[in-house]
């Protein structure tokens, strides 16, 4: 039940957002994550649990440089 696949927010209306998963549209609650049209989000059982950020890769790189020195 914890499978979370990224989807694209195509519209928001109050606490409800429409999410596009490659053409199939689902409704999700955005009560705990501020998101807007165009954001990629992860949805867990009908609740948006996170917005995906674009700078994750560079953060990882820094961490590995640090670990390499251990």
């Amino acid at each position: 039940m914890c499978i979370a696949t990224p989807g694209l927010v195509i519209s928001v209306n109050g606490d409800i957002a429409q999410i596009d998963y490659n053409g199939s549209i689902v409704t999700a609650n955005r009560g705990i994550v501020d998101c807007k049209k165009g954001d990629y989000v992860l949805v867990h059982a009908g609740l948006i649990i996170q917005k995906l950020s674009s700078n994750e890769a560079s953060d990882m790189l820094d961490i590995f440089n640090e670990l390499g020195e251990l």
Binding site: K51, S53, N55, D59, M60, I63, L67, L70
Partner: peptide, 22 residues
């Protein structure tokens, strides 16, 4: 690499140190 160390390392970019406040 962290064997034997008391350390929390976050490799999941979307997660933060703090809980989701809402």
């Amino acid at each position: 690499k962290l064997e034997g160390k008391a350390r929390v390392l976050n490799l999941y970019g979307a997660a933060k140190k703090e809980a989701n406040a809402k």
